[in-house]
Design a protein around this nucleic acid. Sequence first.
DNA 1: AATGAATGAGACTTCATTCAT
DNA 2: AATGAATGAAGTCTCATTCAT
Lengths: 190, 190, 190, 190
Amino acid sequence: MAMSDMRKKIISATLDLIVENGFQGATIAMIADQARVAVGSIYLYFKSKDDLICKTHAYLEGQMLASVMADYPEGRPIRERFLHVGLKLVNYFIASPMELLFIEQFHNSPYGVACRRDRIFNKEGKDIIRELFDEGLQQQILKELPQQILITLTFGPLIGICRNHILHYIELDEPIITRTIEACWDAIRR
Amino acid sequence: MAMSDMRKKIISATLDLIVENGFQGATIAMIADQARVAVGSIYLYFKSKDDLICKTHAYLEGQMLASVMADYPEGRPIRERFLHVGLKLVNYFIASPMELLFIEQFHNSPYGVACRRDRIFNKEGKDIIRELFDEGLQQQILKELPQQILITLTFGPLIGICRNHILHYIELDEPIITRTIEACWDAIRR
Amino acid sequence: MAMSDMRKKIISATLDLIVENGFQGATIAMIADQARVAVGSIYLYFKSKDDLICKTHAYLEGQMLASVMADYPEGRPIRERFLHVGLKLVNYFIASPMELLFIEQFHNSPYGVACRRDRIFNKEGKDIIRELFDEGLQQQILKELPQQILITLTFGPLIGICRNHILHYIELDEPIITRTIEACWDAIRR
Amino acid sequence: MAMSDMRKKIISATLDLIVENGFQGATIAMIADQARVAVGSIYLYFKSKDDLICKTHAYLEGQMLASVMADYPEGRPIRERFLHVGLKLVNYFIASPMELLFIEQFHNSPYGVACRRDRIFNKEGKDIIRELFDEGLQQQILKELPQQILITLTFGPLIGICRNHILHYIELDEPIITRTIEACWDAIRR
DNA sequence: AATGAATGAGACTTCATTCAT
DNA sequence: AATGAATGAAGTCTCATTCAT
């Protein structure tokens, strides 16, 4: 788990530069430079530039999932649990704008093809989100739509407003966030 | 407006190859090859590769908007107009999967930075969508949320399900599409 | 057959520089420079540096075989035919020292592994040399040794003296060459 | 003279890997790995990769000469002494195929330029071979050809058949070896 | 003496762009 | 207007060498 200092420096530089310049625009030389590491050293930790990008993505997604899943209110009503996850997600991405931009760019590029999934949320043994929606469907609290669509109807817009906030198309604040998450709930609740 | 045959061939090849290989993976040589045009000819119509990509994007977005806005039921109730646009949008992208993938990839890349906006829908002098939401807000039919957020809550998921359909994560059909659009309406209606 | 001017310039530069610096020492940049051609142009004619080296070798061997096989005295006694080929070979390599050094270096390197053979002489449908030795064996003019060994006993030393001459270890002249070829004949004749 | 264990391990690994991969293909990392030694340790014993290769060559040639010169039948007739050396040489290289391939590759590469000589046999204070041929020339047993050519006519083919045997182009056995060495004698005897 | 992580110069190769035809 | 051979800057990756431990 403990990642070497070098790996961290390289991944961090990769994140910054790819968000700013894209996958092709961020060259290995630039990344090495920003990480204050020799070009060759990058290849001690990553097999290739592609590998570096995929590993960076995996790392970021791991961080994000861990953050979102913390303090999950197990046992509470479905709506409450949903609102909790939504809020955590939005707060995480607002606090980590680079991470959001990287992940989105990754999933919409050929790099993301191999591991592309419903944006986020669907690996991890437990997969709390899917359980949540399953339960909601069984209890007839949610609309009868495929799980995948329920996810798209909720987390899609939440990520969307984060991006718009990050790109300064809108300015989010607490009440707007809350009301938007509730609007997402309205979209899927019966 | 009438675009020369050559331009069209080049743009079409660009669309195909960039969707399949990404911006860097699609080379000018490949595009020329697929368009059955000489490499040099591309530079008669486009200043550079970047220009080609941006022009391709502009062209595709124009096509899409024209298609979505056709038969707009001016004068009908807000909900009906909203459902109409949503359905048109989904039908267009399901029929034009490449176009969707290109536009999404474009907006999530540094190419899209210059002209990035709330995904789509916000230029065009008239901008029917904004008018629609404005009206809904005035008549207190819609939730009091910034227009930008209303757009994100509705068109975001609609594009999302199209992509999931195109990538075979889900299988859309008429009733599911209709119900999903209605769910989007539920998200924003008061 | 007619080889483009560019190909010829590149192959010629490759020959010179590899003889002088070895396979690794001769860089593509150096070759392009010496050929007065852009680096990228080399890749229009050769798939890779390896391809360039192999094609250069094939070209040189073709030249050499053509030269050696010219004026072959078909129908004359075996000894005469043998002496003819030997003399042609020695004369060719003395006149083309680079070619000899390249071919030798090639055959003794991993590059030559794929197409390595008894140094030279064994492709080409007809293969006059093998016929010559076959005939000599049948007529009991030659020692009963495997053909391969007969070749090694004769052409090996001939190439050897050429190399020694080229490297200035010895100084060949007409009579010495003739007597050496006759010595080779003595090695294999019964 | 006693070579440290480390030196021996490194030289042995160098031999193996260069025969298999060539001078450029065998990297210091690979050599260190195969020798079960740290990369840095190699530089304690050899100034550079070039130095390592040259020292390896010198070591191998020393081994070979020692082996060939053992039991030299001083005082016996020239022909007998010649046959003795030829047989020793062939037997040594058949038993040490890697050594042969390394030495040949070395002499045909720019590495061998600095210390290149008539293949082998010409340093060593006494130089038994040269004495042998000198004597043969004086006694008019051998053809009147430069010593260098006599060497090329004899040891050239002998090394040649060893290589062909090692590369499986021919299969040598005792009688064929003997007859080939005798054929070499025929080449040079008057 | 021995190690191996770190270095960075330099190699091969690609590809957007040009220009003579 | 159309072509595509030629260009060379710039990118990725390798690997001989160093040096702190």
